[in-house]
Amino acid sequence: MGLIHIEMFATLDLVGQAPGGPEEDPLGFPFGGWQAPLMNDVTGGQILAAYEGTDALLLGRRTYDIFAAYWPHQDGEGDEIAKLFNSIPKYVASRGRPDLSWEGSTQLGPDLAGAVREIRDRHEHVKVVGSLNLVQTLLHEKLFDRLDLWIHPIVLGVGKKVFDGGEVPTNVTLLEPPAASPNGTVYLRYGLAEGTPETGDMTASDQNG
């Protein structure tokens, strides 16, 4: 069985909406493209490394449309992300009828959970990029194995959040030490862990100490 990796860029208040540009989600969100001024070589290297070994993409409809309009035209020499994205299968979660002209694209059926499980059986490393609505479903169903978060040093106060109300109690485990870039962006890698969060009594611990 393969692994479902969620790759997510977020602000300090965990807004994940439209990091790449104003056109990603232009209706009612004034900060489209918030990630661009914060990009640097360290973060860029982390992102490239995170995509090593990827053999499929799993995308929501909006993210797929943005990618399909951009990446097929960027397959120049030295653009490793473009070469990767253009060469591997793309699976699209959508209730509508997306244009699947991007080579290697397939729309998932109405049983999303079942389709994701089939994809995980078919591929070793499936990456979910952006796609906040899809991510909410995967978090709720615990249909992910890895969660990579880049937390950027800004607070927006508005926008769709990575954790936005549909999650269930879940344990995760830190896979490697956090890594910070010079501007304060922190890269966190978590893996899905068994069980649900436990509780305790800090006052009892203080009394025993």
Rank of each mutant, 00 (worst) to 15 (best):
D111W: 03
Q35Y: 06
G191C: 06
A179N: 08
P72N: 07
F85H: 05
L188Y: 14
V126F: 07
W71P: 01
L139E: 00
G191K: 08
L143M: 08
P177M: 10
F31M: 03
P22K: 02
E176F: 08
G165F: 11
V15S: 00
Y187H: 15
A113H: 10
Y187F: 15
R122L: 08
P26K: 07
H125G: 01
E194D: 15
Y91I: 04
D79F: 15
L38Y: 11
L58V: 10
D25H: 09
G165Q: 09
P182C: 11
E124Q: 14
R97H: 12
H125C: 09
A68H: 03
F163G: 04
G53A: 11
G104C: 06
S131T: 08
Y51S: 01
A36C: 01
P110T: 09
A69E: 13
P110M: 01
S101N: 10
L48E: 15
L192V: 03
A49W: 10
T196V: 14
D75S: 13
P197R: 13
Y64A: 00
A36E: 08
A113S: 11
G104D: 00
G21F: 02
D164P: 03
P72L: 08
Q74P: 01
T54R: 05
L38N: 01
L12K: 04
G96C: 06
V168F: 09
I154S: 02
L143F: 02
K83E: 09
P197I: 07
G159V: 04
A50G: 10
T196W: 05
L12T: 11
P153D: 07
T196K: 14
R95D: 05
F29I: 01
G157I: 08
T11M: 03
D145R: 01
L27S: 12
F85C: 02
G21W: 01
E103A: 14
N171M: 13
F31C: 00
F85D: 03
V42H: 13
S205D: 10
I88C: 08
P153Y: 06
A115R: 06
L188D: 06
S205E: 14
A204C: 04
P72T: 09
L192K: 12
E176Q: 14
G21Y: 00
D55L: 05
L3P: 01
N208D: 11
P22Q: 07
M202A: 13
L38F: 10
Q136E: 13
L143P: 04
S131V: 05
P182T: 10
R95G: 12
G16K: 02
T63S: 09
G130L: 05
W102P: 00
V162H: 09
G165K: 09
Y70N: 07
D164H: 12
V135K: 00
V162M: 15
F85T: 06
